[in-house]
Each structure stands twice: as structure tokens, then as C-alpha cells.
Design a protein around this nucleic acid. Structure first.
Length: 554
RNA sequence: UGGGUCGUCGCCAAGCGGUAAGGCACGGGGUUUUGAUCUCCGCAUACCAAGGUUCGAAUCCUUGCGACCCAGCCA
């Protein structure tokens, strides 16, 4: 049993916080935030950040805000806002406050005016291309813009008129006056406001100028009293700017930005652009396609919040760029589902078995436990009759070495039922096996046969009592560990990422399967009812993950 | 080649000068009416490399080497 959720290991961020607490920094408070931009669906990489920020806050009796970093209305929408709130809640977290960077637009504007007054920001009329050219390169310093020496009065006037909508989009930009020769590109007079006549999902048309990330994020953190601003490694170079802004506008508090390595999971991509492309070009069936690494996709596939949280704790937290193997995620979901999923039987590719010595119209209501190790999970009734269906794979005319399922003349246990023996193979004109004629040993219900041992146990359903169902077998979406490395990631989409089986039969009890339940279809994997596509009485199950399989095949 | 960051087992990851935790994966044994679960055992004389300091170095110093990030009016 996992103790991970209860006894988290040490990591460098917890060490920093412990140290801050020891020195009574921030009056012993811990306040974090999860700051997504509402321009896409949350994915497994965000889950790492969510678990970190909300987890840290909970652990230290602190607070964690959900803050939408909504400073670029061109890409943002309310649909994303809603999906993000849903996903964070589903993962099991409650935000202390729901915030928006757009709530701070007025304050942000005032601080910008202050910077101008301090001679630390100026309105630049250079075009985007010119600014790029003036910025210099990684090894050469940049050149100062001619507008850098504009007077404070003129800057104030121009910035006020930018806000008033007197200029065209892109005509002017407000820049911080820092150092065009800085070896850190972010400090070469970064733009902090641009003119953009775009309708904002929250502020409507109130603004035609929008603040940039670097300027907005640190001030938003300060306004919320964030103590530890956790972000990913690529923002390391931005920290001097983060600190510069807060120092210069003189916010009442100064949060500490700490960077950690983002999650990289083998066989998946998390680029919003590419995820969007998969959806738009219909390589998958929507943002919640079970093959997607989105929270919505994982949810629809049958993943549990607990398993995802456990995963995020297990993978650790460092500043090292690293790749997590799929096996870790699979282990986490199997661990949870093994413990909590109800057992049931489903036959994916049915093979008819007629039990010749079983009475024609007899039906036995067998009682089978819902979990072999947890009697408290109860029992269910599984009807048994003369004709049952077994998995085609569980019979072999020419068995491979070590095969312990059904063979001609051999015996096998029908799980929770009797031992049967295969007496005859019935084939059609083309030589395909159409059914097996078997006999059962009436003295093997709930006990082992006398004088011989039957090693194999296979699953089955009663033909007349089972329900037809569609099973969707999902596999990894990509066939290489790092699709981002490919010239075109679409070329490495796994052609077998989805296998739809339409002739499956599931046991009687699954006729009333609950979409909130998780099931282990014994010997085949963990499944859940697809609530959306099962509407109208059809039974559609999604495979969350296979069972571990240590049977070595050649 | 300017700046920033990082190198401990196949993959993660502890370690913070006192003689290499743990997890996943993998290999093997046992239990089992799921080839599942459970359980037991094995799995780095060695920490990117080379020097140095020290009674003692993965931990300190020096010099190399390798990887990642940065030149959006994106976040």
C-alpha cells in the first residue's frame, strides 16, 4: 500500500519553505497559486504544478489561489476557464480565492504610470521588427531605441493616449527602461504594454492596451500576498525581471520565484499547439479523448484523481530535466484500481462453448465476490448455463510452450464456476473454429477436482444472460518516446492507439454498470463505462489500462 | 560562442564531509479459482571526467566534458 500521499519525501522546495519558516520569513505564512492561462485544456503536466501548489499550501496550512493569467485575450476564452475550474476541482483541490490577472488591470496601469514617472519606462514607437533588430543577439549587446530618451511628460501623455485608444494596434509599446546591454535578453528593455483592440472575456472592451506576462505576473503575485511563486525552469531567466519590477514599483511584499523542472512523460506531448492540432484535425475525438494527456482525457479513460496525485508525488521535484516512463503512470493507476475496482467478467472476442453434459434449460445463479481480497466489497450473481462464451485467446489448437489455458482434451477452470474439459473442436467449411464441445465436472464448484490439478483459470459469460457491449482498447498515442523530436509529430501517431471491439459480451451484472464505478474485467484490464457514448442503452466501455502481464510471449 | 540552469543504477530520486535511501522497470523463488494481486530475494566498491584539499569526498576547491533554456508587441 502506498504511503506516498501521507509521507511525502523531501524536495528542494519543501527545504526552502522549511528554512523560510524557521527564519519566520513572511510571518510564517505559506501562500501559493496555480496560474494557468485560459488558452487550452489542462494536461498531465499542469497536474504536477497543481498538486505542487495546492499540495504545498495544504501541507503548511497555507492558502493557494487559482489565478487566471488572462492578459492575452486573443487566445483566451471562457470555455477554457470553465474546463480549468472543473479539472482542478476534479483533481481534488479547492482554491482559497479565484483570481484573474484582469482584476488588477487598473492597478497595473497605475504602477506603469509610476514607472514612467520614475523614468523607468518609456513609450517606444519602434515596430516589432525594429525592436527585434535593436535587441542585439545572444553574444552582442542591443542598441538603445531613439525613443528611450523621451521625456517623462511626453511618455505620460503618450501612455495615457494609448489607453484612450488614440493609436493603432502596434503603433506604440510601453517598455521598461533597464539595460540594452544586459547579457540576459529579458532585461533589454522588455515590452510591458502593447496596444491590442481585442475583446476580453472578462473586461470586454474596457481596455485596448494589455500588460505583458513578465510585468503582470509578479505584481499579481504581490497583490495576492503570494509567498512562494512556483514556476517552471524556462522562467529562470525571467527572475531578475520579476524582481526588478517588484523592487521598482515597490509593492508591499516581494514573493520569491522558485523554478522546478516541468514534467516530461514518454510517449506523449503537452504542447498546447500540438494538442489543439490533434483535436482540430480529428486525429483524436476531442479534448477528452482517452488517448489525450489532458485531465479531461485521463478522466474519461477512467483515471482517478488519487492515482494522478500519487503519480505527481512519486515523480519527484527537482531542477533536472528528466523524462518519466509511462510505466510509472500505469503503476499508479493500477495500484488504485487494483485496490478499488469491482471485478467483473467480459469476453472481448467470444468463442462459443457448449457444455454437452449440462442440462438443457438449467441456470445456476453463482455467487461471485466483487474483489478477491476484499470481502467487504460484497458479492454479485453470475448466471451459468449450458452455453458459455470464452475468450478466443483462451483456447489454442496448437498451444505455445507453458500455455495453461484450454486445449483439446485439456481442462480449465471457468472462474467462479466449474472445471470444463474440451472434447471436440467444431469448425466451419473454411476451417475456422466456430465452437467447442465440452463437458463439465459437477464436483468442482468451489473446490478442486480429486486427484488432478487444473492450473488454468479463464473468464467467461453465459451466452443467454450476457449483454453485447463495445469495448475501446486504448494504447499510447505515439509510437516513439519523444514525438516532439520528430520532424512531424503526426507521423509517429500510433496506428493502433485505439482498437474498437464491437462484438464483446459482458456479464449480466454489467447491464446496470455505473459510469462512476471502475471495473476490472478479470484477466483483461481496467475499464469504465463511457457515460457519453453509453447513452441510449448501449454499453460502451473504455479501457483505462491493461493488467500487468508477465506471461512471456515469443 | 554571452547569460542562466543541470549532471547519483535502464527511468525517477534521497544524500548537504563520516564511508551510496526509496520507488518504477528488470531477473528469480513462494502463495493464488485473475499468467492479476500479495510476498520473499537480487539489482551503483560507486556518484559526468581528471586533478586537488582532508584521517575521511557523491558532498569542499580547480579545470575540463556533456545536456537543457533565452534574441514574442506569447505565457
Amino acid at each position: 500500500m502506498s504511503t506516498n500521499e501521507n509521507q511525502p519525501g523531501p524536495n528542494f522546495i519543501r527545504q526552502i519553505i522549511n528554512n523560510d519558516l524557521k527564519n519566520n520569513k513572511n510571518d510564517g505564512k505559506v501562500v501559493t497559486r496555480f496560474p494557468p492561462e485560459p488558452n487550452g485544456y489542462l494536461h498531465i503536466g499542469h497536474a504536477k504544478s497543481i498538486c505542487l501548489n495546492f499540495g504545498i499550501a495544504a501541507e503548511y496550512n497555507g492558502r493557494c489561489n487559482l489565478r487566471f493569467d488572462d492578459t492575452n485575450p486573443e487566445k483566451e476564452s471562457d470555455e477554457y476557464v470553465e474546463s480549468i475550474k472543473r479539472d482542478v476541482s476534479w483533481l481534488g483541490f479547492e482554491w482559497s480565492e479565484l483570481c484573474h490577472a484582469s482584476d488588477y488591470f487598473e492597478q497595473l496601469y497605475d504602477y506603469a504610470v509610476q514607472l514612467i514617472k520614475q523614468g523607468q519606462a518609456y513609450v517606444d514607437s519602434l515596430s516589432a521588427e525594429e525592436i527585434r533588430a535593436y535587441r542585439g543577439t545572444l553574444t552582442e549587446p542591443g542598441k538603445e531605441s531613439p525613443d528611450r530618451s523621451r521625456s517623462i511628460e511626453e511618455n505620460l501623455d503618450l501612455f495615457q493616449r494609448m489607453r484612450a485608444g488614440e493609436f493603432a494596434d502596434g503603433q506604440y509599446v510601453l517598455r521598461a527602461k533597464i539595460d540594452m546591454a544586459s547579457p540576459n535578453m529579458n532585461m533589454r528593455d522588455p515590452a510591458i504594454y502593447r496596444i491590442r483592440r481585442v475583446h476580453h472575456q472578462r473586461t470586454g472592451d474596457d481596455w485596448c492596451i494589455y500588460p505583458m506576462y513578465d510585468y503582470t505576473h509578479c505584481i499579481s503575485d504581490a497583490m495576492e500576498g503570494i509567498t512562494h511563486s512556483l514556476c517552471t525552469l524556462e522562467f529562470e531567466d525571467h527572475r531578475p525581471l520579476y524582481d526588478w519590477v517588484l523592487d521598482e514599483v515597490k509593492t508591499p511584499c516581494h514573493p520569491q520565484q522558485i523554478e522546478f523542472a516541468r514534467l516530461q512523460l514518454e510517449y506523449t506531448i503537452v504542447s498546447k499547439r500540438k494538442l489543439n492540432q490533434l483535436v482540430m484535425e480529428k486525429h483524436v475525438n476531442g479534448w477528452d479523448d482517452p488517448r489525450m494527456p489532458t485531465i479531461a482525457g485521463l478522466r474519461r479513460a477512467g483515471f482517478t484523481p488519487k492515482a494522478i496525485r500519487d503519480f505527481c508525488e512519486r515523480i519527484g521535484l527537482t531542477k533536472q530535466n528528466s523524462w518519466i516512463e509511462m510505466g510509472v503512470l500505469e503503476y499508479c493507476i493500477r495500484e488504485d484500481l487494483n485496490e478499488n475496482a469491482l471485478r467483473a467478467m467480459a469476453v472481448l472476442q467470444p468463442l462459443r462453448v457448449v457444455i454437452d453434459n449440462y442440462p438443457e434449460n438449467q441456470v445456476e445463479q453463482l455467487e461471485v465476490s466483487n474483489h478477491p481480497q476484499k470481502p467487504e466489497m460484497g458479492k454479485r450473481i453470475v448466471p451459468f448455463s449450458k452455453v458459455v462464451l470464452i475468450e478466443r485467446d483462451d483456447f489454442a489448437e496448437v498451444p505455445p510452450p507453458k500455455y495453461k489455458r484450454l486445449v483439446e482434451g485439456g481442462e480449465v477452470r471457468l472462474r467462479g464456476s466449474y472445471v470444463i474439459k474440451c472434447n471436440e473442436i467444431v469448425k466451419d467449411a473454411d476451417g475456422n473454429i466456430v465452437e467447442l464441445r465440452c463437458s463439465y465436472d459437477p464436483d468442482t464448484l468451489g473446490k478442486n477436482p480429486e486427484g488432478r490439478k487444473v492450473k488454468g483459470v479463464i473468464h467467461w459469460v453465459s451466452e443467454q444472460h450476457s449483454h453485447p457491449a463495445e469495448l475501446r482498447l486504448y494504447n499510447r498515442l505515439f509510437s516513439v518516446p519523444n514525438p516532439d523530436n520528430e520532424p512531424n509529430f503526426l507521423d509517429v501517431i500510433n496506428p493502433d492507439s485505439l482498437e474498437v471491439l464491437t462484438d464483446c459480451r459482458v456479464e449480466a451484472s454489467l447491464g446496470t454498470a455505473d459510469p462512476d464505478n471502475r471495473y476490472q474485467f478479470e484477466r483483461t484490464g481496467y475499464f469504465c463505462l463511457d457515460a457519453i457514448d453509453s447513452a441510449g442503452g448501449k454499453l460502451v466501455f473504455n479501457r483505462t489500462v491493461t493488467l500487468r502481464d508477465s506471461f512471456e510471449k515469443d
